[in-house]
Design a protein around this nucleic acid. Structure first.
Lengths: 185, 185
DNA sequence: TACTTTTCTTTACAATTGTTATCGTTCAAT
DNA sequence: ATTGAACGATAACAATTGTAAAGAAAAGTA
């Protein structure tokens, strides 16, 4: 479910992309580094070589995590990156990371010079739309407990790797409530 | 919020669209008519000339309304219509309607012959993505009560026109709970 | 008009969640 | 080794919601 939303680096970095390898810059960051603040305009896009990121939104001082990203994922506030609109969410590292980043300007050049990649991006956008709807519908249909069990089934790696209070807000509940759900049976 | 998701018919039916007017078929339907069933593939797209539609998903026999559409709105299961995937939701009339419909095949011809409309559709898709996220975030951030008040503020016409049990499921609650919220102050 | 269906409200009860606070553990930095 | 921050579990209480059932009001149909 999460995976489908972002092309794997292996896929991104082969074929058409080889030509543009030189446009990427390697970047090392510690945990809890903000890569993009909510309301800001995205000027860079990130590929995760090593580590783990999350996106989150601010709700009256409370953080709500909206997504997790791991090795091989492509991460950016697409909406902002594409159209210079303020980002709806922040992007932050959970662990120390090694990233490959490309600037908005360079990326626009890539799009202008490669119709294949441009089409690939359109498909990517389309898949995001569908995923966004599916996540939404899952939220409408299921209880927090069901969502948690779904997460265990489909993304055990998240449970293993990510601190639980992040997962709690991702499930739409408090960490107290998640703790209760976990110890319910 | 709802409006932005769908180009107004006035906009859709002028300029570039004039050339393709003949491809649309007028259709009258009574209330509670299913135009597309969940899981089916969308073969037609609808423009509402008069009346009101909703989309809904089935959750163990319970209907959850995901969106409302009114005069001037363009309605289709875009995901399905574009890529022949099973629709994630059903489309149904709430009131008797007068619709203008176009077939998938004809629409693909329109796209092939008009780059302007093709680009317009891409932008439309992009706006849908953003809207889908905003709705989702609103769900994560706010309580049912807040969502109801938001709906009153931003879409009073929905409150006026649509039966409340549809609105309840749209807000993610039961009609009992909505009734309580309404009579809370 | 009379009848039926749909829609909305209300009640009582159970279940879940949020809130606040406390406590123990782990982990990293000094 | 020691300190402090981060993390997770637990408890008590309030608030909200779901469920099921019953009834009233409104709308549609014969």
């Amino acid at each position: 479910m999460l995976k489908e939303q972002h092309l794997k680096q292996t896929a991104m970095m082969t074929g058409e992309w080889d030509i543009f390898k030189h446009l990427f810059k390697r970047q090392e960051i510690p945990a809890k580094t903000t890569l993009l603040g909510e309301g800001k305009i995205a000027r860079r896009m990130f590929f995760i070589e090593k580590g783990c990121l999350r996106t989150w939104i601010n709700n009256n001082g409370r953080e709500i995590t909206t997504q997790f990203f791991f090795e091989g994922d492509k991460v950016s506030s697409i909406e902002s990156f594409r159209s210079n609109q303020p980002s709806l969410y922040s992007i932050e590292s959970i662990e120390p990371c090694i990233l490959q980043t490309i600037s908005q300007k360079d990326f626009q050049n890539v799009l202008a010079h490669s119709p294949e990649i441009k089409k690939e991006m359109q498909e990517h956008l389309f898949r995001r739309l569908i995923q966004s709807q599916k996540s939404f519908f899952s939220f409408l249909k299921n209880t927090p407990q069901q969502r948690y069990q779904e997460l265990i089934q489909e993304h055990p790696e998240i449970i293993q790797r990510v601190p639980q209070h992040y997962i709690a807000s991702y499930l739409g509940i408090t960490s107290v409530s998640l703790s209760r759900i976990r110890n319910r049976r």
